[in-house]
Design a binder for these strands. Structure first.
Lengths: 103, 103
DNA sequence: CAAGCTACCTTGCGATACAAGGTAGCTTGC
DNA sequence: GCAAGCTACCTTGTATCGCAAGGTAGCTTG
């Protein structure tokens, strides 16, 4: 029941801060959204190819370098579209869920 | 961004009334959820095989007979699980969406 | 310098939803 | 009473999403 919504969550998190993969996974986990890196890497690459994300390499103090992602200008616009779509969809589902009155 | 949620909507509509395919499509359309019959028939058959839905044939006054679907007892229980899952998921997404405060 | 950890990425699979197309019952018009 | 059209059912093929599993390579630690 989660499909397509993960992308919205990821873009939302990136709106707040520059972050790399493990941090993204932790951010979502703290909201009870479990995601694996096998899901995340293809998504980040896809969004980056679509020019919605950018990244820079940053060295780590304890391991290999990390890709820190952030939104591009187009990514910010995309987020606002996703946000509108999210609100529309939840409103629609709520209207169904609450019962569409009797027949 | 809608994946998996349609099933929840369909089961929700069926909680209120016995209905056949075209009626379901209309109910969802009136909440701005567009779905085609090519999506709906496989889903109804799948839910029926899982014993969550039952149907009876009813003759029409103007055309071929129709399959009127309704929830089984198991379907009602399933709906309550979907409803809980829906509330959990929207709560999670809202907490992400509203900004997970600064780093 | 070897072993282990971390971070990146790919591949194969199952499930969802859509578009397009197909069958058959029923009514309508001639 | 038969052809044409509508309605209702269903199937097939395709794209995409998300996951599990597996793989490469840099960095640290003993």
């Amino acid at each position: 029941m989660r499909r397509g919504i993960l992308e919205f969550c990821i873009v939302s998190v990136l709106a707040d801060k520059e972050i790399y993969t493990a941090g993204l996974i932790d951010s979502l986990k703290s909201a009870d959204l479990i995601i694996t890196d096998g899901t995340l890497y293809p998504m980040l690459n896809r969004l980056q190819k679509a020019k919605l994300l950018q990244y820079r390499w940053e060295e780590s103090e304890s391991g290999p370098p990390r890709k820190y992602y952030s939104l591009t200008t187009a990514g910010v616009e995309y987020l606002s579209k996703l946000d509108t779509a999210w609100q529309d969809m939840t409103a629609s589902v709520e209207s169904i869920r609450r019962g569409t009155e009797s027949e």
